[in-house]
Write a protein that binds this DNA or RNA. Structure first.
Length: 504
RNA sequence: GCCCUCAUCGUCUAACGGCUAGGACACCACUCUUUCAAGGUGGCGGUCGGGGUUCGAUUCCCCGUGAGGGCGCCA
């Protein structure tokens, strides 16, 4: 029998990393052991479902690098793949259960049952459906239906143990005595979740149900529905929950949790995929944790999946992202970075000259970035050079108090003042000349140069910044970038006005 | 309240019942460097508590404790 896996999100919001991880494990399972992955949209909650989210979820999954063989977008032999278009199927099977006597109609009112449940809870007693309508005679049922008395369809739960196999937890055994007869079909004719999944998984011939362990307690109920339908049980694999740093279920209040959010942040999909896989799974003794898509598939094994809940640690995600950012094709980072800079209004038209220049910017700032959107915090310093303000900065002042600092700035200004000098090409010889003329070397040489050029006491390497300043000053940008000469001149004047240049 | 699940450094995890409980992230220190990063080297740090079984328990069993989930005409 071929392996058939499924991922079944509800289109009620953006795809959460917890659900994405479930999708990843399903996908890995299908790739590793060979199998078909089915995407099914669980949109029976009409009030909260929105096709906009369905579209977004699909796009985000593809962005992560996942693919599926059957689904609402690509069709397949077991469709339709949206629960909202499967109501006839649910109704048909419900009818057959009714005929078999495996299910029955219940006319108890929602209010009455709700009242009982509340009272029981207050009294501290466990409540389950008492089975009032379990054994109504056929004529009574017919009469009430005739009177259009509203009714639901309930499963007739058998007594005894319920057993199923779970690849993560092993054999699971439950006593059906704690279960009340669950509702299969609501009074409005819509199926309940537990019933719809079973009908879908069964009729789509799903062989392995890999999902979150929040469904573990519902599984016995579902197993009984499989039994009633006379269908073979799939093998289950219940994945542990992902928690926030406070050890509660990861949710919106923990901040960034959706795939779309990480995409916007400038997290590379391969980094997120690698991290998500490592949440609740480890490749084994002494194996590197940095794993490509192919390596992940090769070393994955469902039997190594952890049973305990895992805390989502954004620092480790950033670690992977830094790694993949350094490895990634430069053009990819440049495209992405350009988008961020355009959003900040720092770029307009991105032609090939601009693109080349952004390449330099990315190369200069990349080593310090956790995620690419940080470029929009770092890069603006290329534009915002204010010498007057800079010389009042404490860090800068400290640099300028180094012996010979003023001399270095003065010499640098002299060197840059030659009309026909190509600053980028001659940068190292300019530095050499400043060094010779000022008699300074090491930090006493480079530090003053840095502050005069950038107005800051730290930042990317000067060798990388100089081409960025010079190149940037030649480009048609929304805001002009000052070249080295303008910077040093300005800085020198500011020093003069602050009395930082000793008069000789 | 009842039912279910889970429990190794701060976090993610590894360890046929048997080496000094291993690795990764984070953190700290050192190193490299013109600075901040990045890189390199090293360090700190853990088997939830109590009972058993055993020559020997992180591992098996029981009892606590803690955490998460389920008990809906939500998914």
């Amino acid at each position: 029998m071929p392996n058939r896996l499924r991922f079944a999100p509800s289109p009620t919001g953006e795809l959460h990393v917890g659900n994405a991880r479930t999708a990843v494990f399903n996908w890995l399972f299908a790739k590793k052991y060979g199998g078909t992955l089915v995407l099914r949209i669980e949109d029976t909650d009409q009030a909260r479902s929105d096709s906009r989210f369905e579209d977004l979820i699909c796009r985000n999954l593809k962005w992560l690098g996942l693919d599926w063989q059957e689904g609402p977008d690509c069709g397949g032999p077991f469709g339709p793949y949206r629960q909202s278009s499967r109501t006839a199927i649910y109704a048909r099977h419900a009818l057959s259960l009714l005929e078999k006597g495996a299910a029955y109609r219940c006319f108890c009112s929602e209010e009455e049952l709700g009242r009982q449940a509340r009272e029981a809870r207050q009294a501290g007693v466990t409540w389950k459906y008492p089975g009032t309508c379990r054994n109504l005679s056929a004529s009574v049922v017919a009469q009430r239906l005739q009177d259009s008395h509203p009714s639901v369809i309930r499963l007739r739960v058998r007594s005894g143990k319920v057993v199923f196999q779970d690849l993560v937890h092993g054999e699971m055994k439950f006593d059906s005595a704690v279960l009340g007869d669950p509702i299969l079909v609501r009074s409005n004719g819509m199926p309940t979740y537990n019933y719809a999944v079973v009908v879908d998984d069964g009729s789509m011939k799903i062989s392995h149900v890999v999902r979150g362990d929040d469904h573990l307690s519902n599984t016995p109920r579902q197993v009984l529905i499989y039994e009633a339908l006379g269908w073979p049980l799939p093998v289950f694999a219940h994945l542990s929950t992902i928690l926030g740093p406070d050890r509660t279920r990861l949710s919106k209040r923990h901040g960034a949790t959706s795939l779309q959010h990480f995409l916007d942040l400038g997290i590379l999909p391969e980094a997120l995929l690698n991290y998500l896989t490592l949440l609740g799974w480890a490749p084994g003794e002494d194996q590197d944790e940095i794993l490509s898509l192919e390596e992940l598939v090769a070393s994955f094994g469902i039997e190594r999946v952890s049973k305990s809940a895992a805390v989502f640690d954004v620092h480790k995600l950033y670690f992977f992202n830094r790694h993949y950012l350094k490895e990634c094709e430069p053009s990819r980072a440049v495209e992405w970075a350009s988008a961020y800079l355009r959003r900040e209004g720092l770029l307009e038209e991105v032609n090939s000259a601009v693109r080349q220049w952004v390449g330099l910017v990315v190369e200069a700032f990349l080593p310090g970035l956790d995620h690419l959107s940080q470029i929009s915090q770092k890069a603006p310093q290329l534009w915002s050079f204010e010498a007057e303000k800079a010389v009042r900065d404490e860090g800068v002042r400290q640099v300028l108090s180094l012996p010979g600092a003023a001399r270095v700035v003065d010499e640098l200004r002299n060197q840059l003042s030659h009309e026909e000098c190509d600053v980028v090409r001659e940068w190292s010889s300019i530095v050499r000349s400043v060094k010779a003329a000022s008699g300074q070397k090491g930090r006493k040489l480079f530090h003053p140069i840095r502050v005069a050029l950038t107005g800051k006491d730290s930042g990317p390497e000067l060798d990388k910044l100089v081409p960025i300043f010079e190149g940037g000053s030649q480009l048609e940008l929304p805001h002009r970038i000052k070249d080295c000469r303008a910077r040093v001149d300005e800085f020198y004047s500011a020093m003069l006005s602050q009395g930082l240049i000793p008069t000789v």
